[in-house]
């Protein structure tokens, strides 16, 4: 197991991509954290099974 990336996470400035509750992104921004909020909507026309399949295919 390579753990260098976790060491990076806890030693470098936090930079967040937020999907879902916008309030989380707003609060991070208020704290001066770099945050990108995604204007998200359910993928694959809202079909979870197709969304899961597409994510496994890397799309």
């Amino acid at each position: 197991m390579e753990n260098d990336k976790t060491a990076d996470l806890i030693s470098k400035p936090l930079n967040v991509i937020n999907i879902g509750l916008e309030g989380f992104a707003t609060e991070l921004k208020q704290q001066g954290v770099s945050v990108t909020h995604v204007d998200w909507s359910p993928p694959a026309g809202g079909d979870p099974k197709i969304a899961d399949l597409l994510s496994k295919l890397g799309t």
Binding site: I17, N18, I19, G20, P43
Partner: peptide, 15 residues
């Protein structure tokens, strides 16, 4: 970006 914060509906969260 080094962290994704995910709070979408559980049906889609894993994908």
């Amino acid at each position: 970006a080094n962290l994704a914060l995910i709070s979408v509906a559980g049906d889609f969260a894993a994908a």
